[in-house]
Design a protein around this nucleic acid. Structure first.
Lengths: 264, 264
DNA sequence: CGCGACCTTGAGTAGGCTCAATGCCGGTGG
DNA sequence: CCACCGGCATTGAGCCTACTCAAGGTCGCG
């Protein structure tokens, strides 16, 4: 059983109003400078700017989306982390993916009728808010951006594929190795890494367990073993890769190469 | 270890030539009549017709896509089954999803640079062939169809989400229950079911095991138990649901309701 | 008739689970 | 200032789910 507590805050109208005013103009978005993101044309930038209806600050623990509801919004993460998950009736929880700065979230819910998963903020976050109706205008007027949206959907599907392979077929140690390498890559892609082998990840061992389909206790022991073997170090939401080769070997890492991607 | 054998056939140029001529005009596609598929406008139908470059017959066992390569094609399944999977270097295999008639496959590979998974025909199949370059024209000229493509991507992501929840957090019996209900729904959606509780699924227990992240032996025992408990019957690629309530109860089934969807 | 693909069953093992207790903060209220 | 509590990490003990190895059985096919 997944043993996470629950004292979550839900998103109310107040939160939206509080931050409804746009703070950062898209053309000067700090994220957009990163080399991982494809440069947008002036026209595209102008559209995104008009598509964006505001910003939202969310505290850690806030539910951005809730399973079984439908949201009128789409978000791009400007700062902070979130995670997407599904639960079983009895509370067992499976984390599906993480959202980092630059990630576009809520597509499933806006395209399909109803949210089939929840998303919760791991840290305080700032999000770029889009109206789901606007998406239709995007498809009608901007083929390039539509393609980008599809591309992003395909990318997140690939990440899920890897996740599923891990959970289905890798041993506990292999799963940990794979997850750590995956997170390391994503963190450094968006320029959040302290150094090339040290990373701040705002998750607990409980999150790792729920991501990998393991129990908390076993996750702890597995990480402890990796630590004893001097492959990683894990302390206080920060981990360090001591022996990347060994870790990659363990994971059978199919190290997805960094691809330039769009930023909505 | 996944113990499937390998004597697969690869797709060569010959196969394409052999069937390059179009056999079924899209506007008279037998699938399109099903109520599960959204009706297309004349204009959309005309485009799809021009997008389609031919048909392909593939024998059971044919590799439609191969991990690490890139394919110039996209397919819509006209008849037959396929499955999408990933493998670890040592041969462990995880089946990610199945493709049934009406499913659009190859999107990941055509949007991203390189295929990160393989797809293999489970039965003899007939596929509708599209050129990947054509996809760009689709986005430029048909917003509605572009949206459809994105919608389909989101849908397959949802199926993956469910899969991941299963493999990560459900017990063996629960996983089997969930998979069977899922397959039952998909089979009946496209009108392939013999009756409302009997279904032909052309997969072996090895496939089930590789889908659910279980060993073959344990899968067999689990199915045997479900059979003993008179919940299902499984024989010769055909299974029957004897006690749907019990099965749904076991699975904690979040029975995705049948949604009208596009057919490319 | 032999072989290959698939299903079945037994026996023993092990990886991962649960229950339970402990330690270590950092925050909060008395 | 201290006691207490909640969230998180850690460790021990015992158990059980699911795995591996191994042997047959059935069926269809060349």
């Amino acid at each position: 059983m997944s043993g996470h507590k629950n004292s979550r805050k839900q998103l109310g109208m107040a939160d939206l109003k509080r931050t409804a005013k746009r703070q950062i103009p898209c053309d000067r978005c700090p994220l957009r400078g990163q080399k991982i993101f494809r440069p947008f044309t002036k026209k595209e930038l102008a559209f995104v700017k008009s598509f964006k209806t505001g910003e939202l600050s969310a505290e850690a623990g806030t539910m951005l989306f809730l399973e079984g509801t439908n949201s009128a919004h789409l978000y791009t993460v400007l700062s902070g982390w979130a995670f997407r998950y599904k639960s079983l009736p009895d509370g067992r929880r499976q984390i599906l993916n993480y959202a980092l700065p630059g990630d576009f979230i809520g597509l499933q819910g806006s395209v399909l009728t109803e949210m089939e998963h929840s998303i919760e903020a791991l840290t305080d976050m700032v999000l770029c808010v889009f109206q789901r109706e606007g998406l239709w205008r995007l498809f009608e007027t901007h083929a390039g951006l539509s393609f980008d949206v599809t591309w992003l959907a395909a990318r997140s599907e690939q990440i899920l594929d890897q996740q599923l392979l891990s959970v289905g077929r890798r041993s506990a140690a292999e799963r940990c190795a794979h997850l750590l390498l995956h997170l390391a890559q994503r963190v450094s892609e968006v320029g959040l890494s302290t150094s090339s082998s040290k990373f701040r990840v705002p998750i607990t061992q409980q999150h790792i367990a729920d991501t990998l389909g393991l129990s908390l206790v076993h996750t702890n022991r597995t990480l402890a073993k990796l630590t004893r073997d001097r492959i990683i170090r894990w302390k206080e939401h920060e981990f360090e890769i001591l022996d990347r080769d060994e870790l990659a070997e363990l994971a059978g890492y199919d190290g997805t190469s960094e691809t330039i991607r769009p930023l909505l």
